[in-house]
Amino acid sequence: MKCLKTVSIFLMLFLMVGCARHSYFPMAEPLQASFENQVQIAHLSKLLQRDDLSDDLRSKMLSERGQSFDRVGLRDLARLDYNQSLLLNPVQSSLYNLLGVYYTQIAEFDAAYDAFNSALELEPDNTDAERNRAIALYYGDRFQLALESIQTYYSRDTSDPLRQLWLYLIEYEVNPEKARSDLESAYLKKDGRWAWTLVGITLGEIPQNDGLILIQAGVEDNVHLAQRLTETYFYLGKRYQIQGNMARAVACFKLALSFNVYDYIENRYAYLELIKVYEGSMEQL
């Protein structure tokens, strides 16, 4: 195990050095499991041992513990709690969405589609499920369906730069020229939100090093910085991927994972990106 960890560390350092040779790459300290989450898990685990809980209360406790497990990266334990909670109370759109994200992350796409459809049947305005279903369709190579789904999500807030980036990434698989044209048009209407800098970097309107400095502006603490860099390195990895620079893309996806911001979709989908790179490399052997 020590040898495996050492190899992983050296591989990551090698990729980071190669990635950063001509670029500036800011870092943050990886987040640690909060004391509050650990106490919550312990407290709920103790309460769940009681025999006098109503099904409704037990379902809520399982849901809460599952979300606490999710926040500290224990996703398999979270999935077990979500499933148990849904057995007791199947009318929980948010849990179907979280299960859908879990199944997307491990490339179980049919299960993911079923989960997201269930979430949206229960709550048609669940925008997280709407976005995540589009992303699952994208990773499942159902690009036209993914585009139709992400367009609905995007139409709810056309000024959101992260929605614009997902629209671009998905539309790029269907019509690259239109995807870039649409992104350029949206960028002309940008507001003061920091993530528009990511759009500028993606388009080449902002030099990468300058953009990465701008992205850190106004960050007050390490938690905020880790969250922002998780998003930044994921979308930067997608930019390199589109350019065909897989070494840098992999380095950026690893960086997106390195801050332990487990509840951000960019952390979850960076893991999936690395799985797809690995599977692709195995197919070429």
Rank of each mutant, 00 (worst) to 15 (best):
Q32M: 07
A247V: 14
Q67G: 12
Y240W: 13
L88F: 06
I265R: 02
R248V: 11
L13E: 02
Y172D: 07
L137R: 07
S258R: 12
E130N: 08
Q284C: 03
S45Q: 09
E231W: 14
L74N: 09
M61I: 04
V250M: 13
A134W: 04
F253T: 01
T127W: 04
L137H: 01
D125C: 03
M246G: 03
A256C: 08
Y233V: 11
A28G: 01
H22S: 14
Y264S: 14
W166N: 08
S63Y: 10
N126A: 11
Q243P: 00
V277D: 08
Q164R: 12
L11Y: 07
F143A: 07
R75D: 12
S85Y: 09
H224P: 00
L214E: 15
F109G: 04
Q38L: 15
I206E: 11
Y103Q: 09
C252Q: 09
S54W: 10
M27K: 14
V17Q: 09
E148R: 09
I265D: 09
R142A: 08
E283M: 10
L48Y: 04
I275L: 13
S85F: 09
A129K: 05
L53Q: 03
W166A: 04
D191Q: 12
E177W: 05
D182K: 08
S8E: 12
E177V: 07
L122I: 02
Y154M: 01
D210V: 12
V91G: 04
W166P: 04
L74S: 08
L88I: 12
